[in-house]
Structures are given as structure tokens and as C-alpha cells.
Amino acid sequence: MATNFGLHRPVHLLGKLRYDLYRLKEAKVSSEARYAALDCANDAWHLVDWVLASVSPERHKELCGHRTLSREAAAGFRDRYSEELPKLKTCQQIANTGKHLILSRQTVDQNISTFSSARFDPAFDATAPTWTGDLWPVLHVEDGNGTSEASSFFGSAWEDWHAWLSCHEPTLLYEADYDGRLLPDV
């Protein structure tokens, strides 16, 4: 019995990542941005599971170094493709923290953190008698490579995944019933 509302291939989860990235960029309030960012991290991390579940047992072992259903498969994949998918470790920690709140079985990388700020449009002028404008939520991801706005970070994760699938598993990137035009351009 299907339980994913018709989403059953890696290309579908990649499309969801793209849509969640759009939601993040368009968020008007902090909660919208935070929910979308957590969804982006979940999508990017769980693409590992979706890819491994979509290939033969032999290809599975080639991709991650472990047999099907091994508890070490996702980490093996992450480590093997860390140069091509450099955001994956950070996405894993954000996704797992979002799911479990406290990580007990995974080593926590203290260099990974998230925080939020705000952007004024137009710029706030404290010397002006009044200010009329918009206040936009801005989320940030910090990892061992520095700090990025979350929309840029997850946009890079989407690009990395698209490139990885194009190179390593192009048949997983396309499907007759997938219409990328339904997704907003991000």
C-alpha cells in the first residue's frame, strides 16, 4: 500500500526539496521560514534513503559500501560522496535534530548550527521619525565552511543532488509522470 501520496522516486523528493526551497525564499514570517528550512534539510538528507531504496542490491553496495537494510548504509553513502554532496552532513544533523531534538546515537558536530535574523526592506533608519517597510525573516546555517543564508545553503544542496543524480544515477532523475514545470523556478 502506498503511503507517500504518489511520491515514490528520488526525482519526486528532489522536486519536493525544490518546492520547499521556494517556500523558504517566499516566507513572510519566521515560522514559515523555519518549517520550510527544516523540510529542506529533511528532503536533502532523506534523498540518500530514497536513492538507496531505488537501486539494485548490487548497486546499493557500490554506492554506500554496505548491504541493503544495513544501519550504516546512509552514513556510508554520505562519507563516500562527501565531496560531491558537501551539504549532506549538515543536512543530516539538522534533519535528525529536527526529528529527535536531542541526538544520542549520532556524534554531534559542534561546528554545525542554525540561527535567525531579520532583514528590513527598505533599510531601517533609526534616526528617521517613522519607518514604513517590511521585515523579512532570514535563516542562517553555520557549518565548518562558514555561515550561509539557509536559502543559499539549501539551494546549493539541491544543485549538488541534481548534479549527483545526473552523473551517477540519471535514470532516477527522470520519470514520465514527473512534470518539473509544476514547480516554481527557484
Rank of each mutant, 00 (worst) to 15 (best):
H162K: 13
D79Q: 13
R71Q: 14
P57Q: 09
D177T: 13
D43Y: 03
D121P: 00
T107L: 13
W50V: 04
A37M: 14
E62W: 11
Y81W: 15
A75H: 13
T130M: 10
S148Y: 15
T114K: 01
L183E: 05
S117P: 08
P122W: 05
T132I: 14
S148L: 14
A37I: 02
W131E: 09
E32T: 02
S30C: 07
S151F: 05
H8V: 06
E72Y: 14
L183F: 07
G155Y: 00
G146K: 08
G180N: 09
D134W: 13
V186G: 01
R34K: 13
A150W: 00
G133V: 08
D179K: 07
L21M: 05
L182N: 09
N4C: 09
P129D: 02
W45Q: 02
W158Q: 04
C40T: 02
G65C: 07
S152P: 00
K99C: 04
R67C: 08
L24A: 03
E32I: 03
D79L: 14
L165W: 03
E149T: 14
R59T: 14
L63Y: 07
A163I: 13
E83K: 14
D49A: 12
A176K: 13
L69T: 15
H60P: 05
C167P: 00
N96W: 00
S151Q: 10
E32M: 09
G76H: 10
L52H: 02
V51N: 00
D121T: 13
H46V: 02
F120M: 11
S148N: 14
G65D: 03
D143P: 11
H60G: 03
L172H: 03
S113L: 10
L14Q: 03
D143W: 11
T90C: 13
N42F: 04
G98S: 05
T114P: 04
S116L: 08
P170C: 07
C167M: 10
E83D: 14
T114Y: 03
A74N: 12
R34N: 06
A157K: 00
H46K: 07
S82P: 00
T68C: 12
L17K: 00
A74P: 03
S104Y: 11
P57A: 12
Y81E: 08
V186P: 01
T90K: 01
E149Q: 15
T171G: 12
D160A: 15
R18Q: 11
T171I: 08
T90D: 06
R18I: 04
K87L: 06
I102R: 12
L24H: 01
H12V: 04
V29T: 13
N42H: 10
A27H: 01
A75T: 12
G180K: 06
L101S: 11
V51F: 06
L14R: 06
M1W: 05
D39G: 03
R181E: 12
P86A: 07
A128N: 06
E84A: 15
D177F: 10
Y81I: 06
C91V: 06
R18F: 01
R181Q: 12
W136S: 08
I112V: 15
S166T: 15
L7Q: 04
E159F: 06
W161H: 01
W158E: 09
L52I: 08
V138D: 04
S152A: 13
E169Q: 13
C64D: 05
L13I: 10
N4Y: 06
C40P: 02
P129V: 04
I102P: 01
F124K: 02
G146L: 12
S31C: 07
H46C: 04
R9E: 10
R23S: 08
